[in-house]
Every structure is written in structure tokens, then in C-alpha cells.
Design a protein around this nucleic acid. Structure first.
Lengths: 197, 197
DNA sequence: ACGATTCCAGACTATACAGTCTGGAATGCC
DNA sequence: GGCATTCCAGACTGTATAGTCTGGAATCGT
């Protein structure tokens, strides 16, 4: 047929994602992307389409990576409370660079044009997915007696989504592990009211 | 002397703030600002400087307005717990348009160039101010027996800052009053462990 | 009335950047 | 070998937009 691609599209996408993640959509130029991805402009447009299309692919890549990782961890860990603790304290313990980078999808939500339905719907869908992952874990927590049966798993799932987004935005502004740890501790207190088995 | 300004700078600034608030910094053009503020380009540059300078003035205006309002409410309300409930349930009960608009300073934090020290420092300073307002209110809550003396007011203040930012980002994506209300209820449970007086 | 300042309208410049196009070399399949 | 495809480098176009400049009218104080 023809000459095969010389670069690894997956790897190039991961690099593009990283750049969008660090700089945001507007501040990331195609020139910078070419450099970071290590491919020429032609190849970039041929493989990934225009900038917006590449951005959407990067968002998807980020979502799949992040969610599957979180879901796996929450499913495998014996104590659900420990799972959420790992999530929250994990964020608190990240490096300054990671705090500054924040969460690509949270940034996308606050950088997007409110009229842009595609990105809005993508992010809404993702939020629903994350809530569902958390909710299932919290249902398990109730079964295991880590959480009161009177608590509403859906409400608590939303609460944790909110807490994580809030922590991410705080961390982005001031990388203060101690302060974030305090916040995590307060949030994790929702597990306190467990019924005795 | 000379011809006086025909427009009200304060009012024009409020309108500019509103536009930045709805659209974000990048998506707000000088042309749109001229139209919204009802003044010509010349007057705009003479009075407010360049776009970035106008933006900073808008951020300042927003901060002063929002914080003094919140501080006043928290100081005047008898029950501190009711004060935070008013804040959180108030956000949950906002209109769809207000949810979409979100918080100007939260948007600024996630839209800013990470290397931009001026805006970063401005937002850091504001976060410290809000934490201080909340902390003082929570100290009063302890004195009034609404909060256990074992709780750390600084940690809880940060927790509420995080919660509000998280709720704002969630509301921006999906204006679901019920869901936000659930989150608010969970967060307000930190007041549950009050010592009896 | 006169000078200083402000107002508006709009022309103009400069720049950044997305996206397209050209050309020539390299690589694999038939 | 020859064709199709991909690679890179870079020129080129088009557009959006920030910011400056010009000119002429309006409004104030003296």
C-alpha cells in the first residue's frame, strides 16, 4: 500500500493531552502542539483533524484513563471509605506541578463557551459517569456497614464529586498539601455515621 | 476645566464585569465590551486602560461586592449554621442563568495562564480573605455552641470554600437545584457535632 | 468667546494564529 | 521500477482582534 505512519498516534495524543492539560485550550497553539507531539503540521491535521477535534480526542483520552483508574481502585479496595480516602488524600499529596495542572475536565468546564453544546454534553455525560462509579461504591459501603443505610448514596456521590472539584480548584491556586488534607478529613467524616453491623 | 464624563464609570465597570462574568476573558471582545458598556472605544481606553486592566478592575469590583455582602450576612445572622445554610442553599436555588454564569473568580482561576503572577496573587489573596471571613464566623459558632470546640475553624472554613467552588462548577455544567441541595445538606452536617451548651 | 477636555465614529496598524497548499524526500507494496 | 502514501519544512492565506490614531462635534469653566 504505502508508507506507514512513523509516529505512535496514541503516544502523540497523550502528549497533546498533556499540553492542553497544562496550558488550557486557548493558550495552546498548534505550533506548540506540533513541537510537543513531535510531528509536522501536515501529519497532525491528517491524523487528528483540526484543533478542536484534537482537543475533544484529548478530553476523551483523559476521561477514559482517569475514570477507569478510579473505578478499578474503588472496586478492588476492601474498604470503600479507604477508597475515598485514597482519592482525596491522594489529591492533597500531589506535587505542586500536578496541583497547578489540576483536572483537565474541570478546566474544560470553566474555559468552555457556554453555547458550545458538544463540550457541555461531553462533560455532563462524564459527570454522570463519575457519579455512577461513586454511587455504586457507596452502595457497597452500605452493604459492608461502612455507611448508614439512611444516607443517600446518590447524594453522597455528588458530594464527593463536588469536593474533588473544589479541592482541585483550590490546589490549582495554592498548592498547600496540609490545607487540602484538612479538607479531605472533613469530607470523609460522612462515613462516620455507620450503623453497627 | 473641561467637559465632564457623560457616563457613570462605576456603572460601566459593572456592565463590563457582567460580560466577563458571562463569557470569560478570552471570549469577551473589546467590541462587545464597548457595546455592553455603552461607551466608545476611546472613552473605554482613556478611562479603564487596556483589556487586561479592565479585567482586573472587574475582578476587584466583583470581589468587593461579593465578599462584603457575604460578610455582612454572616455577621448579622444570629445562627452561624443558618448563615452557611443560606449561602449553600442560596446557590442551589439560583436560576439556570446564574448557575451557568457561575463565579467570576472561580472562572478566572481556571482560565488564567499559570504563569500570570498578578492574577494568581489576586486570587490567592481573595481566597485568604474568604477563608478569614468564614473562620471568624465559625469561631463565633463555637462560642454559641453551634459547633464543637474540637473542630478546627480554619479547616472548616477551607472546607466550605472548597464546597462552594465545587458546587459552582457543578452548577455551571448542570443546573440541577435538587442535586445541589443534596450536596449542601451533606456539607452542612459538619455542624451536627455541636457540644451541648 | 476661547481653550481644554470629552465625546463618538471609524480608519488604520500590528499581531497572533488556525488552517491550507506546495514541494521534495522517504518508505512500503505490487 | 513504479505507484501510493507518508513524512517534513515552510510558504501562504484569511481572520479575528487588540490597540492607536484622526477628525470633528459637544460641553464645561473662565
Amino acid at each position: 500500500m504505502a508508507r506507514p505512519k512513523e509516529f505512535n498516534p496514541e503516544r502523540a495524543l497523550a502528549r497533546a493531552m498533556h499540553l492542553f492539560w497544562c496550558l488550557g485550550y486557548e493558550n495552546t497553539s498548534m505550533e506548540a502542539l506540533m513541537k510537543e507531539m513531535g510531528i509536522a503540521k501536515q501529519s497532525l491535521y491528517d491524523t487528528f483533524g483540526d484543533k478542536r477535534s484534537l482537543y475533544l480526542k484529548a478530553l476523551t483520552h483523559y476521561r477514559d484513563q482517569t475514570n477507569s483508574q478510579g473505578q478499578k481502585m474503588l472496586n478492588e479496595i476492601p474498604s470503600v471509605r479507604d477508597g475515598f480516602a485514597k482519592l482525596l488524600y491522594g489529591i492533597a499529596a500531589e506535587t505542586r506541578a500536578k496541583h497547578e495542572r489540576g483536572c483537565l475536565l474541570l478546566s474544560a468546564n470553566l474555559q468552555r463557551d457556554p453555547k458550545d453544546a458538544v463540550i457541555r454534553d461531553f462533560l455532563r455525560d462524564n459527570q454522570a459517569r463519575v457519579e455512577a462509579i461513586f454511587r455504586l461504591a457507596l452502595v457497597r459501603a452500605q452493604k459492608q456497614g461502612e455507611l448508614s443505610a439512611k444516607d443517600d448514596p446518590a447524594a453522597l456521590a455528588r458530594f464527593f464529586v463536588v469536593t474533588i472539584q473544589g479541592m482541585r480548584s483550590m490546589a490549582r491556586l495554592r498548592s498547600d498539601g496540609k490545607a487540602l488534607e484538612q479538607v479531605a478529613r472533613v469530607a470523609l467524616a460522612v462515613f462516620r455515621s455507620a450503623d453497627p453491623l
